[in-house]
Design a protein around this nucleic acid. Structure first.
Lengths: 191, 191
DNA sequence: CGCCTTGTTGACACCAGTCAATTCACGTGG
DNA sequence: CCACGTGAATTGACTGGTGTCAACAAGGCG
């Protein structure tokens, strides 16, 4: 399923606590992981109106039988997903709340730029502060206070749901962000 | 590279903070992710004496050209890695410190049982409390206190580096643990 | 025996969660 | 056009979980 919109992947505990484990931006192959894992233990929820392109598992199976290179490209996409997971783990374990928020902004800026959905100084973030809390493992109130700190420090401005940053390098330094893990513009060699 | 021992995957920040993003148990294909991602941004460190079996990328390339089913099996293994990453994200964002520790114990018990390295009521955990802190995003001191709470609640005992649990179901309930994400015993269909 | 790593403990500071109230933005219906 | 309702953002007061620092105990090992 390829999504033309924003979607979230989340896990929910017995007592209602939930954690968002991935953010899918337009163009992402949202549940490619379910091709081989079959029953995926977490659910997907759309954030914005989404056009979805379905890809039946039989077709993927056939494709992976006949086109080794294309298979490697799809595999590569899931490996990038895993690398993003690791970056999030790093953020949740080692970064402060404002740093985590800043790190997420840096990542989304780069991912959205890749699909032409970010402007030079800003991008649209269709998440409420409460949802951001479920992404970062913070309470909604603390997300709000982290926002305020980034605004007071002058490294992030907001306008409605737009995130505005004039000096991305400053934000990247603040968040200790290194985009290598996204493997942007990398190609999967054919031979 | 297939490892016959314990190893850690970790990310390090500029200022020295580090976060462990994965624990490899004996039998894991430790850096299969680097096959297509090439430069992996995090490093691997061994915990115990390890025998390693190297697998050159050219061989993997050839294998994925000629054996679609085997390719899907390898792909599947990396998808399980990603599922484990998501479970860790869930734990770091939604669980308390003792719950996180208990959740990790449940996961390692199941993974070690699969390779015949766990006994019915215990398994060997070759990590210091400080390293556990870097896994769970906690300070070493707080890992120690979480240990004490689990011991006082009577759901975990320790003997040197052995983790001893008499009632796994109780521990699983405490940690809200569901092993589905490990996809144990699942096969990748050939046709 | 004495070092060195690991585990343990206490005191204290601070980051982050909770709860409740208020403001704000926005859409809807009268 | 305005009153109202709803969800989101914001604020304050307070609590509690977790980090930090420092000291000490407990083992493993040369």
């Amino acid at each position: 399923m390829i999504v033309e919109g924003f979607a979230l992947r989340q896990k929910t505990l017995e007592d209602g606590r939930r954690q968002i484990t991935a953010i899918h931006v337009p163009g992402d192959f949202a549940d490619l992981h379910s091709f081989l894992l079959k029953k995926l233990d977490d659910g997907v929820e759309t954030l914005t109106a989404c056009k979805v392109v379905m890809f039946p598992h039989e077709n993927l199976k056939k494709l992976s039988d006949d086109f080794p290179h294309l298979t490697r490209v799809l595999w590569f996409m899931t490996l990038v997903d895993a690398a993003i997971h690791r970056a999030w783990i790093m953020g949740m374990g080692a970064l402060s709340a404002p740093e985590r928020l800043a790190h997420l902004f840096c990542e989304l800026k780069d991912r959205l730029t890749q699909v032409g959905l970010a402007q030079a100084d800003r991008f649209r973030l269709p998440l409420t502060q409460s949802e951001l809390g479920d992404v970062l493992g913070l309470s909604a109130v603390h997300v709000n206070r982290s926002f305020q700190q980034l605004r007071m420090d002058g490294i992030v401005q907001t306008d409605k749901r737009d995130i505005i940053v004039s000096d991305w390098d400053e934000l990247r330094r603040f968040a200790d962000y290194n985009p290598d893990y996204l493997h942007l513009n990398q190609t999967v060699e054919r031979d």
